[in-house]
Amino acid sequence: MSVKHALLALLARGESNTYQLRKDFLETTGQSWPLNIGQVYSTLQRLERDGLVSRGEKQPSQDGNSETEPFSLTEDGREELLKWWFTPVDREKPARSELVMKLALAASTPGVDVAKIVQTQRRNTMNALRDFTRLKVSATSSPAELPWQLVIENHIFMAEAELRWLDQIEGLVAAHQNGAAANAVSTTDTTALIERLSEVKK
């Protein structure tokens, strides 16, 4: 996910400071993606360096105990954001998945029970799917909750897809194990036949 473009999108609503941007980001995404204040600040610094945002004069914070610096979009920032809105997400470079990597390594490592790993992950994903579904049911039709609902729908579809994928993996593993067992039996039978033929020749 691009923190850079997320901050540009939030600033398109109006000028804002570091703490408010983080708060708005977490509210918009339903806190699905952690974002610490250091990430926000360092990203804003890079955006300012690249001429995509500008920094305003320091202002007293709401509690009056400190000062904040408001940031706003520049024209270059608006152009960059517009370009991002209509640039498709590149699916030719899929995000790295720890689960895919784990199962690929397990399948190629002798002695690892891949089926058990799949079953353990399936239980976890099903629990997550139930939680996401409960959140969806509790949502209201308020326009303010639309961004959060979009995030929840994505989580639900991703969990459902992962469960289907795990079913496929379980079938592939079982087929591979059955094939390996059949091959081992075939090899044993062939070896025994060769030995018997050798005895006949003697």
Rank of each mutant, 00 (worst) to 15 (best):
Q177H: 10
W165F: 07
A159K: 09
A192F: 06
V173E: 14
V173S: 04
Q168T: 13
I194Y: 01
H176G: 07
I152D: 02
D189M: 15
E195W: 00
D167V: 06
A181C: 03
P147L: 01
E160S: 13
P147D: 01
D167Y: 04
G179A: 08
E162C: 09
N154E: 11
A181M: 06
W148A: 03
T187C: 07
N178E: 14
I156P: 11
I156C: 08
E199C: 00
A184L: 14
L146Q: 05
P147M: 00
D189F: 15
E199L: 04
L197M: 05
I169S: 03
A175V: 02
R196W: 01
Q168Y: 07
I194H: 01
Q149P: 02
A192R: 11
I169Y: 08
R164K: 07
E153G: 00
L193P: 00
A192M: 13
L166F: 11
N178H: 10
Q177D: 13
E170P: 05
A181P: 09
W165H: 04
A181Q: 14
P147Y: 00
D189V: 13
N183S: 10
S198E: 07
G171R: 07
L146A: 05
L163S: 03
I194E: 04
F157K: 15
E160Q: 15
V200D: 05
A159F: 03
Q149F: 01
V151M: 12
D167T: 12
V185K: 14
W148K: 10
Q168F: 09
R164H: 02
Q177R: 13
A180I: 11
A174W: 03
E170K: 14
I152M: 05
T190W: 13
L197P: 03
T190G: 03
W148Q: 07
D167P: 11
N183I: 04
A144T: 08
Q149W: 01
I152N: 06
S142T: 09
L150F: 04
A184W: 02
A159N: 13
R164Q: 08
A161M: 13
I194V: 07
A175T: 06
T188N: 11
A184V: 06
E153D: 09
F157L: 10
M158R: 06
H155R: 12
L193Y: 00
W165I: 02
V173W: 05
G171H: 03
A144M: 02
I194W: 00
Q149Y: 02
W165Y: 03
Q149T: 01
H176R: 13
L163Y: 03
W148I: 05
E145H: 06
L166H: 07
A192K: 10
A182L: 13
Q168D: 15
E153W: 01
A161Q: 12
Q149K: 13
I156W: 08
W165T: 08
S186I: 02
G179V: 07
F157H: 14
S198Q: 06
Q177Y: 04
Q177M: 06
I156Q: 14
A181N: 05
N178I: 05
